[in-house]
């Protein structure tokens, strides 16, 4: 595999930046500046838990287009127990990485 050329990488960087900025701006530019009807507000209230749950599920249990349970799944689960108990995020993150690293050291995927 040859490394991508600097030009390819600059195009990728600028293209990704432009797309990300446009996506972030879209909602506020198109929908902003006016009062939304109550039904729309009821939908908006539900967006955070749904989007975050989908992000957690896909980042912990999938790799690209395949569902996959590996050492990191156990690490994330251990961190989840700590977070539910109200422990600090940094502690949870360190435990997640440590559990994952130890399981891999033992030869698990």
């Amino acid at each position: 595999m040859t490394d991508p050329s600097p030009t390819t990488l600059w195009l990728l960087i600028l293209g990704t930046a432009a797309a990300t900025m446009a996506i972030k701006a879209f909602g506020p530019v198109v929908l902003g500046g006016r009062q939304l009807p109550p039904a729309a507000t009821r939908v908006l209230v539900l967006l955070p838990p749904v989007v975050l749950a989908a992000l957690v599920a896909t980042s912990a249990l999938a790799d690209g287009s395949t569902l996959e349970i590996d050492s990191s799944t156990a690490g994330v689960a251990a961190a989840g127990v700590l977070l539910v108990q109200g422990r600090h995020l940094l502690l949870a993150v360190l435990v997640a990485a440590a559990v994952t690293a130890v399981l891999r050291l033992l030869g698990l995927p």
Binding site: L55, V56, S59, A60, G75, V76, L89, A96, A97
Partner: peptide, 8 residues
């Protein structure tokens, strides 16, 4: 494992 924990 950090990225999913962050969102969790």
């Amino acid at each position: 494992a950090i990225y999913p924990t962050f969102f969790l």
